[in-house]
Amino acid sequence: MNARAHELKVREVISETADAVSLIFDIPTDLTGRFTYAPGQYLTLRVPSERTGSVARCYSLSSSPDGDERPTVTVKRTPGGYGSNWLCDNVSAGDVLTVLEPAGNFTPRSWNRDLLLCAAGSGITPIMSILKSALRLGRGDIAVLYANRDRPSIIFATQLQELVRRYPRRLTVVHWLESERGLPTARGIAGLARPYRRNDVYLCGPAGFASTVKQGLGQLRVSERSIHEEKYRSLTDNPFEHATIAHPDPVGPVPVASAESAIVTVDIDGETHTLPWPRTKKLLDVLLDHGIDAPYVCRESACATCICSVKQGRTRMLMNESLIEEELAQGLTLACQTLPESDSLHISFDQ
């Protein structure tokens, strides 16, 4: 079992709409530090499956660490979606779920900038977390553009109204309802977003909605660098079922670099390991093959859970959807996508 997986008790289940529920977790005292999270992050839940043993599903935290007492994820039913339907139909207060520690990097780097928060459907969950923290911690003005099928399908409708009442000078919430206006259009989004075109944009929703929003913002000449998108994706690897090989580093002569392998020294969890690193194999796979329980969730460069620092040597990433230029300049990389380019390398997970 993944060392970052823990059993958490569900304290309460709240029905948000006919198709969405919020799961509020109790965090044991000894796990408080491990479940400290940033606004916009998510939890990965283990959902039992008779066919595969389990499936792993990621759900954004809709709670804010800056005001909400307990971490909460909100789950909306997806047509044909096994995980979301199982959670909505089967989980009750008092149940215990296996949950990975918080992950993700969909978090503003400054709370004092003006924000445009765009969401559709269940995409409101990380947006809600960011919104509550920004209002409590920051000084900027915030606009929320939220698209839904109809009024009854608006998740957090009451909470959004209450926040507008409490912060009337800083918060504007604009709803786009398909029942009244049809599907969102780039032109329509541009019209609504025009007053906020200089704000930092945080965007979460289905691919079609996200594409429409970016087209609309493009019409306003909003820089792509100002748009931060949280993408829905299905995990290709189950972090709950991955069996690590529990054997120590090989005893004997220190490995040497060759045409096929580099040599890497890795600092992780207070220990140091020196390993051969095949030049065509990603660092995360090398560590797991040696029984080293490196952190990961998505294995697709999106969650930044496997972030580490290159202290010596050169590496290259096959994909990067998480790290910005400043972080790359600091020597940060993603173990799930990183290959060696030097003969000798030093990597540290202990930041």
Rank of each mutant, 00 (worst) to 15 (best):
S60D: 07
T29I: 10
K9W: 03
R169S: 10
T305M: 14
F349T: 04
W176R: 04
D350G: 09
I268E: 02
D249P: 03
E260Y: 09
P295W: 06
E224V: 01
S110F: 07
A143P: 02
T72G: 04
S22A: 15
R4I: 00
V21P: 00
F25I: 07
D285L: 11
G94M: 11
P195Q: 08
Q330Y: 06
G252L: 03
S348Y: 04
R170T: 03
S226H: 09
E162A: 12
D343Y: 04
E327N: 07
P248N: 07
D269G: 10
T52Y: 09
N2C: 00
K214C: 13
G216V: 05
R77S: 14
G83F: 08
I142Q: 01
V144S: 03
N238A: 08
L117M: 08
V47I: 15
D114R: 07
I292C: 10
V10N: 07
T272K: 12
C336E: 05
P184N: 05
T274Q: 14
D269R: 12
F209P: 02
N105I: 08
P295Y: 04
F25C: 11
E260I: 02
P152L: 10
L43I: 08
P126K: 05
A147G: 07
T272I: 05
P28Y: 11
R70N: 15
D66F: 15
A262Y: 08
Y232N: 06
Q159E: 15
G270R: 06
I245D: 04
L284Q: 02
K9M: 15
E260Q: 13
K132I: 02
P184K: 05
A335Y: 03
E241L: 14
R299A: 12
T305Q: 13
L288C: 08
L318M: 09
E224Y: 01
D249N: 06
T32L: 15
I189W: 01
S348C: 06
N238K: 05
D95S: 15
Q215F: 07
L61P: 10
I154M: 08
A243E: 14
H6G: 04
H242N: 06
D150G: 09
L203V: 06
K282G: 06
L145Q: 00
Y59H: 12
N112W: 04
I154F: 07
P248G: 10
V254R: 13
G140C: 12
R166S: 11
K282Q: 12
Q337C: 03
